[in-house]
Write a protein that binds this DNA or RNA. Sequence first.
DNA 1: AGCTGATATCAGTCAAGATTGATGTGATGG
DNA 2: CCATCACATCAATCTTGACTGATATCAGCT
Lengths: 117, 117
Amino acid sequence: MSTDVLETDTDGPADMAGPANAWTVAGLLADPLRRRLVELLSDGPACTCHLVTDTGAKQPTVSHHLRALREAGLVTAEPRGRFTYYRLVPEQLRAAAEHLLSLAERARANDDRSREC
Amino acid sequence: MSTDVLETDTDGPADMAGPANAWTVAGLLADPLRRRLVELLSDGPACTCHLVTDTGAKQPTVSHHLRALREAGLVTAEPRGRFTYYRLVPEQLRAAAEHLLSLAERARANDDRSREC
DNA sequence: AGCTGATATCAGTCAAGATTGATGTGATGG
DNA sequence: CCATCACATCAATCTTGACTGATATCAGCT
């Protein structure tokens, strides 16, 4: 049998909310163009044509990166007629940020615990 | 006289506190081995040999990534005899995290402001 | 001084991923 | 119904960066 009949509409990120996600987000934000896309989308939802214009990158390239962001659940895609509107998912960014914060906190707490050789 | 007698000992990260830093941190955390190193160092300072043992990676590889982390100011190096102790700089992680948070916040605020085509 | 262990650097190799042109698909307008 | 626009996918190329073996450096030990 199969329970894989999920996410059949646009695309499903499989809802990873754990700590592993923070690393995924970091990996996505490592690329300059993807950073730019995220920044642009933080000003509000926009369709592909906007993002292509604003970034100056070719359309297939933008589509490619939007797909990566979509599959990670960092953005959602909403088809409207001929256009496809992309929208940031702040919760994902927030989760990643909080994970980094907890790591920083832990590092500060263990700052004086040097391991012996 | 000169006040540039800073960072002359081990290495100086140039103290980037802006949003550029967040992207740099993201880029660094994109690599699996570097994530591991950061995680290990969050448990407290350790020398290269520890990190080599714990990660299972070759020594030059670890040194290479430690250098990247060092140059970005994410870690500091403190030579002690034959060993070199590395220490996480929580402030950098924290700064990056806060930038992501502000981005998430902005995205949430502009969530209903879709751009027209 | 000579030796050994701990690290850093270098040059070469190789693989992952980014970019691009071509092409397919669905929606809109005449 | 045909032409066009917005977008996604594909196959190929190309660039970036990670890994490795060899080697240099420096500290401690005998």
